[in-house]
Structure formats: structure tokens, C-alpha cells
Design a protein around this nucleic acid. Structure first.
Length: 443
RNA sequence: GGAGAGGUGUCCGAGUGGCUUAAGGAGCACGCUUGGAAAGCGUGUGUAUGUCAAAAGCGUACCGAGGGUUCGAAUCCCUCUCUCUCCGCCA
């Protein structure tokens, strides 16, 4: 099975040397085309012109304000000098002059604040520009198969049990207890089921370490700044659990705390690439998704995941994306699970992502593909908010590119492992896991 | 939860209304010196934004954040926030 990433990165005007507004200004057509890929139509496209108009106003207002302030500063200095020389009357005259300007300065400052607020709000509404390889489309049905499973799909016949039945049969997890303790969507794992979870986590972390990622154990609650910096706020407000008393959010993914490690940091170019991995539970309210795919472990409010994050030089990011895809692929090969890779279409692509590959694993009992990993390049979209920068060879401060991927998300992997490997004698674990789980067969 | 002390540049640290262009030191970079290194000496050293085709230059803002007083604020006043110490509670 070979991987061939067929896009060229050289010809793209990547947003690497500018801030977002400037990027929009200089690549307006590309931004509009990107919005179209994401199914933005008519009035929603107007946001681009609105933002540019606001930015024009910001510039002209700033110029006017600066000139006024410069004049006032100059006069104030003169007043100080005059007082020292004892020239009171002249000083009083200048004072009056500066004083008369104050109203105007205040007015301009207020205008400036308003413009900046509007501009920021406008910018927050514009999603990342999709990579040219992103197919247009409305929903997950339009995602493109980037790499298909080229062998026969496992057929277990009609007697195969879905994982929620297997969980009961072998006493691996208990949804009713989860409901009793917390509520729907909070599974309780026990016995060999818990052991399997722990083994998988260790396996994933060890593989990440082998690939050069530094292991991090981050806080599981983050403050508003961190949630905003990685883009969970404001657009995913309702998807996170919010501890309102302390205004902290339960993390929906390790990406949030781990990427925030480098918020407001100017990185030394020779420290690239920065590679971090973390295992954390992930908490998701999944508001609005009830009734769809919620059976068993397919969609839960709390699940465990090992995440990999990289912060890299802009010129390297697509190469790194490929490397990360390979890493995930390698995990699935070792787990001996049938998988395929999808390129997310515009309508399904995350707000912050430029290009995302989803990994799906085939669940033989449910006879369907389950999403188990998502690997994305955010280019400068995240780093612009995070202010993750580096000094390049030309001494200029530039935005770095950020990427992340799940490697891997547990609940669905567990589902697929159980279903695909069920036999009369029990569930036969893939060889790679024997050492980690401490058994070859779950029975 | 209660009481107190704090937040200044990459770091340490001075600075109680205008000779502050944020002292001084360390670090870092470059240069001189050296057989090489260290020491020493010299020079430089933030972020954002505006003007500009661009660079240089110049302007503006930034001493935790936001307001206020003043011709002028790191400095005075108010609010908020974060950190630290002690007490209380606690794994």
C-alpha cells in the first residue's frame, strides 16, 4: 500500500508572510474561491469585502489619529521645557491648544476601537482557505476517497455481534452504569475492557515517542484565552462543557492545551519541527447530534485519545502532513484493521483547517466505516490567533504552520477491534497489542 | 474561603508627574583582539501598527488588562485579572 501525495506546494501563494487581513487583501480571489468550496453563497461572500473596507477605514483612521497624537506629544514636551525656563504664559497658550484637541482625539480613539472590534468579528467569521485539493461539496457524503482499502472487506456473516453486544458478553464496558453515574454517552470500562483501553493508550504513546514526539500531560480544563486561541471559541461554544463558576472549559481534544503551549511564543527557527503528543480524555457535548450514530461507542461524550501536534516551518507543512498521515496509517496497519483515507470536502472541512484527511476503519459487524482519525494542516490560521511565530533567515517574524492529528481516538478503535476479531473462542487481539494488553484473546 | 505582597524588555533589576529616547547588569548576535578559546574591548539587540512599490527612515501604541485625572502617566486614582506567601479546608 503506497502513499502518493500528488499536489504541488510550490505554486501556492501560501499565507506565510502576512497577517490574515493582508493575506485576504492580496489573495482575494483565492479566498472567495475557498469560500465557494465551502458552499458560501451570495450574501455570505460579502463578508470579504466588508472586512477589506473595514481595514481601509482602520488604516486611514490610524494615520489621522497618529498625526494628532504626534502633534500633542510634541507640544507637551515643549510645555515641559517652557516651564523649566519659567515661561509660564507661553506654556499656558500651548496647553490650551492641546486641550482643544482632546475631544477629537477621544472621538478618533472611540472610532478606532469600534472599527477594530468590527474587523476582528468579521475576521472570525471567515474560515480558513481550503487547499486546492479540497473537493467542493455539502456534507460528508461528498468527501473524496483519497486511498481506498484494496483488499476484500471482512465478511462475518449475519451472526456477527456489534461491539455493544460483545461488551456485554465479555463484560468489557457498561453503558447503564455510565448512565447511573453521569448520564448517556459516558461509558464505564471494566476488567479486560479497561485493560484494553490502557494497552491501546500505551501503544499509541510509544509509537508517537518512536516517531519523535515529546509526550505531554496537559491540564484537562482550559481558560477562555486558550479555547479562543485554538478556535474552539467562539464557533464551537456549545460543543464544550463549560465550568461556569471558574469560567474554564473541559477540553474537547488535547489539541487545545498542547497547541497553546506555544501561544505568544516566538520560536527559534532551528527548533523546528516541534512535535508533541498527549493522551487525554476528550469531552464533547455533541449537542444536536442525538439520534444519529449514537449507538454503543460510536458517539460518546467522553472518550480517550492520543493526539499528535506539530508546529513547523511554512515551507514544510505539507510534507509534514504527509508524514503524519503515514504515522496514523502505520498504527492501523499494526492493529490489522481495514482502513481507508478520505479527503474532506469543503462542506465537511473544519472551520480552521486548510486540508484534512480522515481515516475510517471498517466495522465488520455494523457493516460500516467509522471515523477514527482526522489529520489536518491549519497553515497559519491557528498560528495567527495563537501568535505562534518564528524568526526566519531574513530576520522577519513570521507565522508558523500548525498541524495535528488523532493517533488515535480510542472508543471507535475499540469498537472495530472487538467486532472484526470476534471468533468462537473469543476476541483475538492483533499481535502488536499482546504485550500491551497482557493477553492474546479476550474471553 | 480569609489576610497580605507583587506583575517593568529574552532574563535579573532600577525607576513616586516632564533631562526616560525605560538606568544598570546578564544573556544573545556581530566585530576587534588571539595560534585557538576564554577574558577584555566595541557595536547592536523587543512586539504591533501607519506612511512607502519595497527597504531605510520617520510617526504611533505597548511597563498584567481596561478606564480615569493631567498640557504631559511605568509613576497618581478606580475597576478587573493573574502570580506568590501565610492561614483555613483538603488528595
Amino acid at each position: 500500500m503506497f502513499f502518493c501525495i500528488h499536489f504541488s506546494i510550490d505554486k501556492l501563494p501560501i499565507a506565510k508572510f502576512m497577517l490574515q487581513v493582508n493575506f485576504i487583501r492580496e489573495n482575494k480571489e483565492r479566498v472567495l474561491a475557498g469560500l465557494a468550496t465551502r458552499n458560501y453563497k451570495g450574501e455570505r461572500l460579502a463578508i470579504v469585502d466588508e472586512v477589506l473596507a473595514l481595514d481601509d477605514r482602520r488604516k486611514s483612521t490610524q494615520t489621522a489619529l497618529d498625526a494628532m497624537l504626534a502633534n500633542n506629544n510634541k507640544l507637551s514636551k515643549e510645555i515641559g521645557g517652557l516651564y523649566r525656563q519659567g515661561k509660564r504664559e507661553e506654556a499656558e497658550g500651548l496647553k490650551a491648544q492641546v486641550e482643544s484637541q482632546k475631544g477629537k482625539v477621544k472621538e478618533l480613539e472611540a472610532t478606532m476601537r469600534q472599527i477594530k472590534t468590527d474587523l476582528t468579528n468579521g475576521l472570525l467569521e471567515i474560515p480558513n482557505v481550503p487547499h486546492p485539493n479540497v473537493p467542493s461539496g455539502n456534507s460528508d457524503e461528498d468527501n473524496e476517497v483519497f486511498q481506498d482499502w484494496d483488499k476484500e472487506l471482512l465478511d462475518l456473516g449475519e451472526t456477527a455481534l456489534p461491539h455493544w453486544e460483545l461488551g456485554k458478553k465479555y463484560n468489557l464496558f457498561d453503558f447503564e452504569l455510565g448512565v447511573k453515574i453521569t448520564g448517556a454517552g459516558f461509558p464505564l470500562f471494566r476488567g479486560k475492557g479497561a485493560r484494553l483501553q490502557r494497552g491501546l493508550i500505551n501503544f499509541f504513546l510509544d509509537e508517537a515517542a518512536k516517531a519523535g514526539y515529546e509526550e505531554i500531560i496537559p491540564p484537562l480544563l482550559v481558560n477562555e484565552d486558550s479555547a479562543r486561541a485554538t478556535g474552539q471559541l467562539p464557533d464551537k461554544e456549545g460543543q464544550m462543557y463549560h465550568a461556569t463558576k471558574d469560567n474554564l472549559y473541559l477540553i474537547p481534544t488535547a489539541e487545545v492545551p498542547v497547541t497553546n503551549v506555544y501561544r505568544d511564543v516566538i520560536i527559534n527557527e532551528k527548533d523546528f519541527p516541534i512535535k508533541m503528543t498527549a493522551h487525554t480524555p476528550c469531552f464533547r457535548r455533541e449537542a444536536g447530534s442525538y439520534g444519529k450514530d449514537v449507538k454503543g461507542l460510536n458517539r460518546v461524550h467522553q472518550f480517550d485519545k492520543v493526539e499528535v501536534v506539530q508546529i513547523v516551518h511554512p515551507e514544510k507543512s505539507y510534507e509534514v502532513l504527509k508524514e503524519m498521515v503515514k504515522h496514523v496509517e502505520n498504527l492501523l496497519i499494526k492493529l490489522e484493521l481495514p482502513y481507508r483515507v478520505l479527503t474532506l470536502c469543503g462542506g465537511d472541512l473544519g472551520f480552521t483547517s486548510a486540508l484534512t484527511y480522515d481515516f475510517e476503519v471498517y466495522s465488520a459487524a455494523q457493516k460500516r466505516w467509522l471515523e477514527v482519525s482526522s489529520v489536518s494542516n491549519f497553515e497559519t490560521f491557528q498560528s495567527n490567533r495563537l501568535k505562534v511565530r518564528f524568526k526566519g533567515a531574513n530576520k522577519k517574524t513570521q507565522l508558523a504552520h500548525t498541524l495535528n492529528g488523532s493517533a488515535l481516538a480510542l472508543a471507535r478503535i475499540v469498537a472495530a477491534l472487538l467486532e472484526n476479531n470476534q471468533t468462537e473462542e473469543g476476541i483475538k487481539l492483533p499481535a502488536a497489542l499482546h504485550r500491551y494488553v497482557g493477553m492474546e484473546v479476550i474471553d
